Amino acid sequence: MRVAIFASGNGSNFEVLAKHFAKGEFNAELALVFCDHPEAFVLERAKRLQIPAATFTVKECHGKEAYEKRLLALLQAKKIDFIVLAGYMRILGQEIVCAYDKKIVNLHPAYLPEYQGLHAIERAFLDHERTGKNQTGVTIHYVDTGLDTGPVILQQKVPIYPDDTLATLEARIHAVEHELYPKALSQIL
C-alpha cells in the first residue's frame, strides 16, 4: 500500500509518522508528502528524510477546482492508495474524498464532536478560561464530506489544568498526537 501524507505547516506529526514508516512499523510505504504551502517547514523535513515531496497552491492553479484536479492527478500518477492528513489545513474536495472513500484519515486536536474545524486548541483553552472546562482531546477519524464528521478511529482525552497556558496545553496535545496517530495507523494500514 502506497501512502501520501498531506501537511501544511511545521510537520512534526509528519516526521513522527515518517520515522514509524522507516522502521517498517506499518504495512505500507510512505510514497509522498504533499504540502499546499511551498515555504512550509514540512518540506525541509521531507527533504532531510529523503521522502518525495510535491507542493503547489490553489492560487497557482487558479482556483480550488483546478487545484483539486491537479492534486487528484498527482495522487493517481504516484499510485497512492491511502492518504494521511497531518496538519493539512485545507478541506478536501468531494472528488478526492469520493475517490479515496474510507482511505483518508485525519488528526484533529480535540475530542470530537467538540471543536470541529479550525483553532480547536484555542477554542478549548478559551472555554477553560470562561467556564472552567477541564478537558479537551485528540481524535483520529476517517474523512468524509463533512467538517470533522467522519467515523472515529481513536480518541484520547487531554486534561486542561488550572495553571495551563495555551502553549502548555498545545504541547501536551501534540505529545498525545505523536503517540495516538502511529497507534491508529498501525491498526488500519
Score class of each variant (00 low, 15 high):
E129G: 06
Q135I: 05
G137Y: 10
K133G: 07
E129Q: 15
T149Y: 05
I153T: 04
L154T: 08
V152R: 09
K133V: 11
V138R: 05
V138F: 06
D148L: 00
V138N: 01
I140D: 00
G137K: 12
N134I: 07
T145M: 14
V152M: 07
D148Q: 00
P159H: 06
G150S: 10
T131K: 15
Q155Y: 04
G150M: 07
G137A: 11
R130N: 14
V158C: 09
P159N: 08
D144H: 08
G132D: 03
K133H: 13
D144A: 05
Y142M: 02
T136N: 10
N134K: 15
P159V: 07
G137M: 11
T131L: 12
E129T: 08
V138T: 08
P151E: 12
T139R: 03
V158W: 04
V143P: 12
K133I: 12
I140G: 01
V138I: 08
N134D: 15
G150E: 04
G137D: 08
L154K: 14
P151M: 06
D148K: 02
R130H: 13
Y142Q: 01
T145F: 08
L154Y: 06
G137N: 12
G146C: 11
D144L: 02
H141P: 02
G132V: 03
T131I: 07
T131W: 09
K133R: 15
Q155D: 03
L154D: 04
L154Q: 10
L154S: 05
V152G: 03
V138Y: 04
G132C: 04
Y142L: 02
L154R: 14
Y142D: 01
Q156V: 01
Q135W: 13
K133W: 07
T136Q: 09
G137P: 14
G150Y: 07
Q156D: 00
Y142I: 01
D148A: 00
Q156S: 06
G150Q: 10
V143N: 10
R130G: 10
P151W: 01
K133Y: 06
E129C: 12
L147V: 15
D148N: 00
T131C: 08
Q135A: 13
V158K: 09
T149L: 05
